[in-house]
Design a protein around this nucleic acid. Structure first.
Length: 115
DNA sequence: TATGTGACATCAA
DNA sequence: CTTGATGCCACAT
């Protein structure tokens, strides 16, 4: 049967929260990877949008989600813009100048880990 | 219903 | 290398 978009039991946002919460300690992932895992594929922007809405409302480690370049584009939306970089460094992820040094080394792909 | 928006991704020049 | 344009799709108004 066909479901109306408005009648979706779990909103896109809710799924984003679930995946984000499963990001292991000291690991990071990208918006595109999450979007692809959710089936949205090309709605990577929505992932970030969802995290912004969930900020301080949902218990989501948004600081572990960065863009494809490893750049911490979302730091401005935190209570403290420096918090994101500090948290990642505290978890063993090298972040210099708001960018993850070795993204591949710390990258966590939900497609591979969650299958 | 239509329009605007965006914590991205990707390509062309 | 950098900059600009385009695609994409769920959500807000």
């Amino acid at each position: 049967m066909l479901l109306n978009k408005k009648d979706r039991p779990n909103s896109f946002y809710q799924k984003v929260y679930e995946v984000a919460r499963q990001i292991p300690f000291g690991r990071v992932t990208s918006y595109g990877a999450i979007a692809k895992y959710l089936g949205a594929g090309r709605s990577s922007r929505m992932v970030g949008y969802a995290l912004k809405s969930s900020a301080s409302t949902e218990n989501v480690p948004a600081h572990r989600v960065v863009n494809r370049n490893g750049l911490l584009t979302g730091r401005h939306h935190f209570v403290d813009p420096t918090l994101m970089e500090q948290l990642l460094n505290s978890e063993g992820v090298e972040v210099i100048n708001n960018q993850v040094v070795d993204l591949k080394k710390h990258f966590w792909d939900p497609l591979s880990e969650l299958s």
